[in-house]
């Protein structure tokens, strides 16, 4: 009887404790949003959000905090990275799911996992040693642009490489979710493999593929160190891919914790952090909703 009671007690206490920990942890995201908002509120009280987002003038000492160049820098780096990574990752994941033999897959998959584990400063280091000189001495001269190599193109390329593993694994999941029967039916009708991929697997699933890509990118969107190490960090609106830019995460990383004596400076930086957080939140929740809906419809 006594033993039974202890066991029961343990069960009750443990489940309450677990509930507490779980509930607290799932609140973390809201706590972060709230905490950042409370700080960022100070600057929102002096200027309206559209003003802050669209102004190009960044002069903290004069109390001017225009985020436009940084937002543009972030968008540019991300778009460039998408441009480099989406086609190659889609092709690779199609190759791995539809064409490659088990042996090749068993060789390549661990390598891609490994790529996922490399720390971002190592990517940055590699970017400085390899990509920066490559852009400076070989690629930019082709187009007739003088550049230091620390520019948007380099940042976009390094970010693209960092996105590879995530993007490959999410799009692989989409292709793997295609039932084997679909493949068989299409091939049995005399389609080539590529026709099967294109017409039976990609076109009907285009929404899922887009959602997977967005999801992959929401993870890379706020990537800081590697991009910051190669993108130049000049607060200007870039006019070509060979110019330096200054993405939001780099702005925060370079300045937060320093120059705290300038009024509102930290509030502005935390507003930048809040923006990053919210953008990631919107994209990842949106993508997930689309993916969930697709799953439900198929089942």
């Amino acid at each position: 009887m006594n033993l039974k009671l202890t066991r029961k007690l343990k069960e009750v206490i443990a489940s309450r404790l677990m509930l507490l920990i779980t509930a607290l942890s799932s609140m973390l995201i809201f706590v972060m949003i709230l905490g950042l908002f409370l700080k960022a509120r100070l600057i929102l009280a002096t200027q309206s959000l559209p003003e802050l987002l669209l102004s190009t003038s960044w002069h903290p000492l004069r109390g001017e905090f225009g985020f436009y160049p940084f937002i543009l820098g972030t968008i540019w780096v991300t778009v460039l990275a998408m441009f480099f990574s989406i086609p190659s990752c889609l092709l690779t994941s199609i190759y791995l799911t539809e064409y490659a033999s088990a042996k090749i897959r068993a060789f390549i998959k661990p390598l891609i996992d490994l790529l996922a584990g490399i720390p971002s400063v190592v990517y940055g280091l590699w970017g400085i040693l390899v990509v920066v000189p490559l852009v400076k001495d070989h690629i930019a001269p082709l187009f007739g642009y003088p550049t230091s190599g620390y520019c948007l193109l380099t940042g976009g390329f390094v970010l693209a490489i960092m996105v590879f593993p995530v993007l490959i694994s999410v799009s692989e999941e989409v292709f793997r979710a295609v039932p084997h029967e679909v493949r068989e039916i299409s091939l049995a009708l005399g389609a080539t493999r590529w026709q099967t991929v294109k017409h039976a697997q990609m076109v009907p699933r285009i929404k899922g593929i887009i959602a997977a890509i967005v999801l992959g990118f929401s993870r890379a969107f706020g990537e800081t160190m590697a991009v910051m190490m190669v993108v130049g960090n000049v607060a200007q609106v870039p006019s070509s891919v060979f110019q330096p830019a200054y993405p939001l995460p780099a702005l925060i990383a370079n300045n937060y914790g320093e120059m705290m004596s300038i009024p509102l400076y930290d509030a502005a930086l935390l507003l930048a952090a809040l923006l990053l957080l919210l953008i990631v939140l919107v994209f990842s929740v949106g993508a997930r909703i689309v993916l969930l809906r697709i799953e439900r419809r198929v089942v």
Partner: peptide, 9 residues
């Protein structure tokens, strides 16, 4: 998915 810089800040 939250960027690690946001955790830091």
């Amino acid at each position: 998915g939250v960027p690690s810089i946001v955790y830091g800040a």
